[in-house]
């Protein structure tokens, strides 16, 4: 049944595809964009799209903006900035949204979380990561994103525990797509070069269009499917490549940075030594770049296994595109956007 779906973060990398997928599936969409955003979202003929201009870090206008909404897909989060910035953009924003939903009698939520919440450091290589895997319970040494997303999940659960509220938490893996094909799970920038870290680990990828479809399916089902309420569901694609396989697919299609290679065991050992020295010599007070912090490094490069079985079972979802198709579509989208931008500037 068609729903009116309220989508936060609608102009973000993932949000644009979720809006599109929701509209294509026949839903009405209220797309939340920040007050100063100049991004224009387009709807096709006969599609119902309303842009709502609010900033979730403030409660101003939130309740009113939720009028006549059936379900919320909450994508908005701060991915950059210091801890206070990300806390405000992710945790306080979610707190405000949930309070407004309660006041506006909106009781269905797709809470978008992340694979970053899992405890990678204390999980053995080769382990299958699924929804029952332990989350990080001491994330102080993780990045601000993981720390704030963990707090966000607590808010989701607390809100979902209230009578009549239904929440399903989706944890996508690394979402990739146009302009985000060469990403942080392949390595790290070191000056003008890119340090490739590891080759054999399977990547927990979720192509952005596949991921958007899963989110919309969850939104369509949560108001009527009691089996979905309070569930956590991982979202990853079917044919997950290794780091080397994925890099080869991408490098064959787009220009990528100059790279040099460091085996994962070498970097893992070096980071462990830095952590031990920090603990013993500096009382653990020193702060080093992420590639020298085991807690962060393991979350990105450890060889683990992943499954989307629960997503398929509960959401009746299947990723539409394989990795190769996804990369090819992304490249085409990038080229189309470039052409559109060139013709726009010519017309000016």
């Amino acid at each position: 049944m068609a729903q009116t779906i309220y989508i936060t973060g609608a102009t973000g990398f993932v949000g644009k595809y979720v809006v599109s997928a929701a509209l294509d599936a026949g839903n009405a969409v209220k797309a939340v964009v920040r007050p100063s955003s100049k991004t224009k979202l387009d709807a096709g003929d006969g599609q119902s799209l309303e842009q709502v201009r609010v900033d979730l870090r403030s409660r101003a206008g939130l309740v009113e903006s939720l009028a006549d909404v059936d379900v919320v897909i909450h994508l908005a989060a701060a991915k950059a900035g210091d801890f206070a910035t990300q806390f405000a953009g992710t945790v306080v924003a979610t707190e405000n949204l949930l309070a407004a939903m309660t006041e506006a009698n909106v009781s269905n939520l797709v809470g978008v979380s992340t694979f970053s919440v899992y405890d990678y450091l204390n999980t053995a290589s080769g382990t299958l990561i699924d929804e029952s895997s332990p989350v990080d319970t001491a994330p102080e040494l993780r990045d601000e994103y993981a720390r704030t997303k963990l707090l966000q999940e607590d808010l989701y659960r607390s809100w979902g525990a209230q009578e009549d509220n239904n929440v399903v938490i989706l944890r996508p893996g690394m979402i990739y797509g146009p302009d985000n094909l060469w990403h942080a799970l392949l390595g790290a920038e070191v000056g003008p070069k890119f340090m490739r870290i590891g080759a054999k680990a399977t990547l927990p990828l979720a192509y952005v269009e596949n991921c958007a479809n899963a989110m919309v399916k969850a939104a369509e089902m949560i108001p009527t499917d009691p089996a979905l309420a309070s569930e956590v569901i991982n979202i990853v694609d079917d044919d997950l490549p290794t780091q080397a396989e994925y890099a080869e697919i991408v490098q064959a299609r787009i220009d990528t940075p100059d790279t040099f290679f460091v085996p994962w065991p070498v970097l893992r050992g070096a980071a462990a030594s830095v952590k031990a020295a920090n603990r013993h010599l500096l009382g653990g007070r020193a702060k080093f770049p992420g590639i020298a912090v085991p807690d962060r490094l393991h979350a990105r490069f450890k060889a683990l296994r992943y499954t989307n079985a629960k997503a398929k079972r509960l959401l009746s979802w299947t990723p539409t595109y394989t990795t190769k198709q996804a990369v090819e579509r992304s490249v085409k989208f990038e080229q189309d956007a470039k052409s559109a931008s060139t013709s726009d500037s010519r017309s000016l």
């Binding site: 806390f87 945790v91 306080v92 707190e95 707090l151 808010l155």
Partner: peptide
């Protein structure tokens, strides 16, 4: 004013 902030 934010319970999440105060609690954290």
């Amino acid at each position: 004013l934010s319970e999440a902030s105060a609690s954290y």
